[in-house]
């Protein structure tokens, strides 16, 4: 474990807490893409299939359970909770996210570290996570002004994988045989997708103005 990866995991956890706070405090999921939340639930379920078979550390197991439980809880909230469900705008959240699932799974069938069930689902979860934010970014562009908590949620979610890139550079430099090409390349693509969001987020922070993504 290094500082970059710990900071990355904490930033990821923070993004989830901010989203839970937004939904709990406002009893609303306006501006939040249910499809991105569903994609993240699939990412965690596919990536942590080894939750009960491979024990890495208490921290690792604990965080996996937190990520799986929180992502399922958020999807449940948006789909089932009467107050929150009413605020979900399905006319804005129209990204065909099942195409992302299909494309990621197809790619995982061809590009993986080993042709085993766990490795293919792991690669699938890595590719799917890289594009999981797309429905959310499209929704933000459509819904005009973005409330603070939703903006902070997306910012932290994008920042965490950026910190992981620093972690991979650090591990590549310090560990003799460390190579994680699938995770690295996917992580760079994932972080790059946030580029324009980061730019407008920085502008809104600098000008102390409302975050607004151009349509």
């Amino acid at each position: 474990m290094n500082i970059f990866r710990l900071a990355g995991d904490m930033t990821h956890l923070l993004s989830i807490l901010v989203l839970l706070l937004k939904i709990y405090a406002t009893k609303s999921c306006s501006g939040v893409s249910r499809k991105t939340q569903e994609l993240y639930a699939i990412v965690f379920l596919a990536r942590y299939l080894d939750l009960f078979t491979d024990f890495i550390s208490v921290y690792n197991t604990f965080m996996k359970i937190v990520f799986i439980a929180s992502s399922l809880a958020i999807v449940w909230c948006i789909r089932v909770h009467p107050m929150v469900k009413r605020s979900y705008d399905k006319d804005l959240d129209t990204f065909r996210h099942y195409l992302l699932v299909a494309a990621s799974f197809l790619l995982a069938l061809f590009l993986h570290e080993k042709f085993t069930f766990l490795e293919i689902f792991w690669a699938f979860s890595i590719y799917l996570e890289a594009v999981a934010i797309l429905p959310q970014l499209v929704l933000l562009q459509r819904s005009g002004n973005v409330d603070n908590l939703t903006g902070q949620y997306v910012f932290f979610l994008g920042a965490y994988r950026g910190l992981y890139i620093l972690n991979w550079i650090y591990r590549y430099l310090t560990e003799p045989r460390f190579t994680r090409w699938i995770a690295c390349v996917s992580g760079v693509v994932q972080t790059a997708l946030y580029a324009d969001f980061f730019y407008y987020y920085f502008i809104s922070w600098k000008n102390n103005s409302k975050l607004k993504l151009p349509a």
Binding site: D50, I56, S57, N60, M63, E119, Y164, R180
Partner: peptide
């Protein structure tokens, strides 16, 4: 050899 490395990251 890559796959031998434990998936120790989240």
């Amino acid at each position: 050899p890559e796959a031998e490395q434990a998936k120790d990251e989240l």
